[in-house]
Design a protein around this nucleic acid. Sequence first.
DNA 1: AGCTACCTACACAGATCTGTGTAAGCAAGG
DNA 2: CCTTGCTTACACAGATCTGTGTAGGTAGCT
Lengths: 205, 205
Amino acid sequence: MAKGQEKTAQVGVTTREAASEAMRDRILATTDRLFYRQGIRAVGVDTVAAEIGISKRTLYNYFPSKDALVVAYLERRFAPIPISDRPPAEQILDAYDRVGSLFAADALRGCPFVNAVTELADPAHDAAKIAFAFKERRRLWFRDLLLAAKAKDADGLAGQLCVLLDGAIIQMLVRNDAGLAEVARDAASTLLKAAGVKLPARRRR
Amino acid sequence: MAKGQEKTAQVGVTTREAASEAMRDRILATTDRLFYRQGIRAVGVDTVAAEIGISKRTLYNYFPSKDALVVAYLERRFAPIPISDRPPAEQILDAYDRVGSLFAADALRGCPFVNAVTELADPAHDAAKIAFAFKERRRLWFRDLLLAAKAKDADGLAGQLCVLLDGAIIQMLVRNDAGLAEVARDAASTLLKAAGVKLPARRRR
DNA sequence: AGCTACCTACACAGATCTGTGTAAGCAAGG
DNA sequence: CCTTGCTTACACAGATCTGTGTAGGTAGCT
């Protein structure tokens, strides 16, 4: 892999381009942290620039407006779901465990897409479109797993599982209790069982 | 009831006090509309005062700060749940229909308490405490109905129903689809059935 | 070496926001 | 009647926010 000490890090990519990409990454990483933890409206571009250690002017060279920064932040959050070959029911239930773990590790402050929709309060904003697309993608992810698991009414059940997942995230946030994730998981188990899905044996407890 | 044309509307209540209370109501009614529809951070006190048709100075005579106004807004939303003598399972499922109807009537833009928590992004804010209390009260409402319906594990199931309800509200908001309320209701039906609760016959459909 | 592009520092415009101070008007209450 | 208290209009302080303009430094690129 390593091509040695070439002048350019990659063929056809100048160091300038590489530096530009690195800067963009730095900006988005910091933006993500601040927007997600403190809220989009609560964080100004001055704060973002200062936190990164760059001038506000540079930030505006990369993103023409705060709105563009918000969109880029959400698009970055819209990362593809890794494909797994584990049993579908296990993957589904793991989704609830995952949000529970994230919350317990203080890495979850609601759903970034939902938060953006709530904070911006403008259905015409691009953030609303991205949020919609994100929720739709997750619904399809659930649905495909349910089809693979031969569940009855995979479509309807997928919607129910989405409702449970978002509900768990919200309830954890407001009630400040990571246990709500397991509550949602239990509900999901009941729904899966009712749809004729064979559940994996409980690992712990 | 009517005591006639007395000087004071109520015994021991001067017209001044009555006017003051009426003004407070007007302020809170308008505040509710603006804060809920457009968001707390998106609406300034100038806007609120202008919308009511009073001076900003008067508004600050009633509420010493915007924060106090926010708290009063949320406290007003914290109205007691009307007690009903209808069958418990029916009352529970109706909760989902109700949020669905509200959303369909364009009267729902998420949960005001959740929105406040998200917008203010400060766990120490009074809004977070009020939101917590609101969610807790609803959980207990579910739990008591479940106990009356002789459901298995009323406590656990109440938590699940809360997750479903909040999830439905969020999903309706982001996906802009009132049908999600029925999805949540179906899930709730399945959970109730699994807990041994006799469900009411479906009214329509 | 010299050109080009980016980055920084900094000032600033202009809009907004919360909250206060003040003088004048007006109506209720004693 | 006349005092007291509420309301208004308006100005303003001070903070914050987005976004721009500019001059000069620095580092890549040819």
